[in-house]
Write a protein that binds this DNA or RNA. Sequence first.
DNA 1: AATATTAATCGTAATATTGCGATAATAAAA
DNA 2: TTTTATTATCGCAATATTACGATTAATATT
Lengths: 110, 110
Amino acid sequence: MGLTKTEIFTTEQNRIADLAKAFAHPARVAILQMLAARKSCVCGDMVDELELAQATVSQHLKELKRIGIIQGEINPPRVCYCINPSVWEEARQTFGAILDSFVPVPSSCC
Amino acid sequence: MGLTKTEIFTTEQNRIADLAKAFAHPARVAILQMLAARKSCVCGDMVDELELAQATVSQHLKELKRIGIIQGEINPPRVCYCINPSVWEEARQTFGAILDSFVPVPSSCC
DNA sequence: AATATTAATCGTAATATTGCGATAATAAAA
DNA sequence: TTTTATTATCGCAATATTACGATTAATATT
């Protein structure tokens, strides 16, 4: 098939998956690292840093905007992108919670 | 094209992306949540919990094994899956580090 | 008004992912 | 040895993702 059956999972599980998708491609990791470090902010500068075409970078930015983890401010003819602090915090909480929910114990089955 | 240019990114960026992929599909989130809570452990039990075919669940387990975040112990005719504590800890460190690397400041550009 | 700069979008191509039925593999149990 | 139970793998189909050239859109600048 090739279509994720989102309806059989909880809203939370789907949101976790979406937040993880923000980090699930090395180009998006690179973009988020740049924005987190405030190394660059303008789309064109990021295109220069990454060895990817402008259209490709723009597409990754669009996906990050869809998830909500970044926001753009039009400053013609440039667009300045920034991390959305509240969604970044949501990601911190979300990954923190799930990753803290497992505590290793010696007597596990394997 | 459709092929991620892994060679233009750092090993770290590619590893982060891989670890994120473990959580980037709601079915895998559900599997990891079950394993973290030790709710179930055997493949067949997970197939019962999830409304997905056995082949599909097996494929997600394979991907999680490739990433290293789970490990399986053959206990014929069953296979018991568990979280790999060291890779889980790697994920904790990795996501913790990247998510802590951004600190909001009021005077940002957008 | 014409030009230049920058980013978004469109169209296309190729690879990846998701999902499942059918089959194979494995080893215990009868 | 045959049967049963469980999981992995194969083959296929459909959708998603990644990537890029070309074009469009928006707005300063000349």
